[in-house]
Computed example of a mutant assay.
Amino acid sequence: MNEPQAVGDAFEATRTILAPMTMFGIPEVLLDEARGLWSIRQPGAPKPTIYRCEDVAACEIVEIEPERAEAPDGLKGVGEIVMNPMAVSRGNALRRGNRILGVIVQVTVHRPDAAPVEVNIKLWLRQLKRGTRAYRNVMESARELKGVFDEMIAGQGNG
């Protein structure tokens, strides 16, 4: 466990839920267990956004699916292959349906006196082939993160 970090007077991180990886755009998600708060700080943001654990209403893992595009045909297709073979190759891989464009853990938070908000925790925003080790690692991280939020939701019935 990381050392507690003070964020103003209203939040003291006691547990790191998700360590930031700015190179990949992964935010920092921390938990203040004593106050029943969690925070998310997006890469580049000076301050985190803080939410109450009891306000977490739902959590789901979302795989970003590519839109199904039609395969190019005729001379246009040949021209595209010559001009940009890598783009055509990526497009063909996406059309096969064995790749995704990213993984997000989406948390629905109810707020007092306001409409619910969707907090998107972006774990991966690059093309990823299903079944690979990288895909399994990203999905395992997503399930672990979702598990923390599921515990927050389950804890609401015990209070």
Rank of each mutant, 00 (worst) to 15 (best):
Q42S: 13
E33K: 03
R95C: 09
L125I: 08
E67H: 03
V82A: 03
V138L: 08
R130Q: 15
L37Y: 09
R95F: 09
G102E: 07
P4Q: 14
T49W: 00
G74M: 02
A13S: 15
G159Y: 08
Y135D: 08
D32P: 01
R126E: 12
W38Y: 00
T49I: 06
V138K: 08
G44H: 04
V107C: 04
L101A: 03
P46I: 09
V82P: 01
C59N: 04
G155W: 07
L31V: 15
R35F: 12
A93E: 03
R15E: 09
A34K: 03
P43C: 11
L101F: 01
I40N: 02
R90T: 05
P116E: 10
E80K: 06
V119D: 03
R130M: 14
L30T: 09
T108R: 10
E63R: 15
A10I: 11
D113T: 13
G131H: 04
I100D: 00
E151M: 13
L94D: 07
E140P: 04
I17S: 01
T16W: 06
A45N: 03
A87C: 04
P112Q: 11
G147N: 04
S39D: 00
M152H: 12
G36T: 04
A115E: 14
R130N: 14
L125P: 02
Y51T: 09
P112F: 10
A45Q: 01
N84E: 08
D113L: 15
N84S: 12
N120I: 05
I104L: 01
K76W: 00
P43N: 07
G157W: 00
A115D: 11
I64A: 09
A13Y: 06
N158E: 04
P20N: 09
M83G: 08
G36H: 01
V117K: 11
E67C: 02
W124P: 02
E140S: 08
L128D: 06
R99P: 01
P46S: 08
E12N: 09
M23Q: 11
R35D: 06
Q5D: 10
K76H: 01
A142G: 13
F149V: 15
L94R: 08
V148Y: 07
G159C: 06
A6V: 15
K146E: 13
Y51S: 06
E12Q: 12
A114N: 10
V148F: 09
R99G: 05
N137D: 05
E140H: 05
R126T: 13
M139V: 14
R35C: 10
I40K: 05
E80L: 14
S39I: 02
Q127R: 10
L37S: 04
E140V: 07
N92F: 06
I61K: 11
R126V: 13
P66F: 05
A19M: 12
K47Q: 11
I17D: 01
P66R: 04
L128G: 11
A93H: 02
R111I: 14
E118W: 04
G36Y: 00
A93G: 02
L145Q: 04
K47V: 15
V119R: 03
P116Q: 12
I64T: 10
R68W: 00
I26E: 07
R41Q: 15
Q156T: 15
R95N: 11
F24R: 08
G102Q: 10
I121A: 01
Q127I: 14
N92P: 01
A69G: 00
E63P: 14
M86P: 10
C53M: 05
L128K: 09
T22R: 08
D9Y: 09
V88Y: 08
R95E: 07
L123M: 13
R133Q: 08
N84M: 07
